[in-house]
Simulated assay, not measured.
Amino acid sequence: MITRRTTFGALIACVVAPLMVGCQSLPPARPAATSELNVVTSGGFNAAFDTLATRYTAETGTRIVTGHGPSMGETPNAIPARLARGEAADVVILARSGLDRLVADGKVARGTEIDLGLSKIAVAVRAGAAVPDISTPDALRATLIAAKSVAWSDSASGVYIQTTMLARLGIADQVTPKGRMIPATPVGEIVARGDAEIGFQQLSELQPVKGIRIVGLLPDSLQKVTVFSGGIVAYSPRQREARALLTYLSSPSADAAIRASGLEPAPRKARP
Score class of each variant (00 low, 15 high):
K224D: 11
V227C: 12
A242R: 00
P252C: 09
L246Y: 00
A256R: 13
Q207A: 15
G216Y: 08
Q223G: 11
A254R: 05
I190E: 06
E189K: 11
Q239A: 11
T247S: 15
Q201A: 15
L249Q: 04
V225K: 09
P208D: 05
I232D: 07
V209F: 01
A244H: 02
I258P: 11
D220F: 05
G211S: 02
P237N: 04
P237V: 02
R213V: 15
A196N: 02
D195E: 12
K224W: 04
F228R: 04
P219F: 05
A254M: 05
V209W: 01
A234T: 14
R259M: 14
A244V: 04
Q201D: 15
T247A: 15
Q202E: 14
V209S: 09
V225E: 14
S250C: 05
K210D: 13
P237E: 01
I232M: 10
L206E: 00
A244K: 07
S253E: 14
G231N: 06
L217K: 08
I214L: 13
Y235Q: 11
V225T: 15
Q201S: 15
S250K: 01
V215C: 08
G194K: 00
G199V: 07
F200L: 10
P186R: 06
S250V: 04
E189V: 12
E205I: 13
P219L: 04
R240D: 14
Q201Y: 08
P186G: 05
A254K: 06
L249T: 03
G230R: 00
F228S: 10
T226M: 13
P237M: 03
T247C: 13
K224M: 14
T247W: 03
Q201H: 12
A184D: 12
R259D: 08
V227L: 10
R259Q: 13
V225F: 08
T185C: 02
P186H: 01
I232K: 05
G194S: 00
A242V: 00
P252M: 05
V215D: 05
V233H: 03
S253R: 12
G199M: 07
E189F: 04
Q201F: 09
A196L: 03
V191M: 12
T247F: 11
P219G: 04
A254P: 12
K224N: 14
G188F: 01
T226Y: 09
V225A: 11
P208I: 09
F200M: 10
Y235E: 07
A192F: 00
A196E: 01
D220V: 13
E197F: 02
F228H: 11
P219C: 04
L222F: 09
F228V: 08
D255G: 06
G188V: 09
T226P: 10
G211P: 09
E189W: 01
V191H: 07
G199P: 13
Q202A: 15
S221Q: 14
I232V: 15
I232E: 08
Q201V: 13
L222T: 10
L218G: 11
Q207L: 15
I198Q: 07
P252W: 00
Q239I: 07
I232S: 08
S253Q: 14
K210T: 14
G231M: 04
D195N: 09
A244I: 02
V225P: 11
I212T: 09
V233K: 02
R243G: 14
E241N: 06
A196H: 01
P237Y: 01
R193F: 01
P237H: 02
I212V: 12
V225S: 12
V215W: 06
P252V: 09
E197R: 02
A196T: 03
S204K: 03
P186W: 00
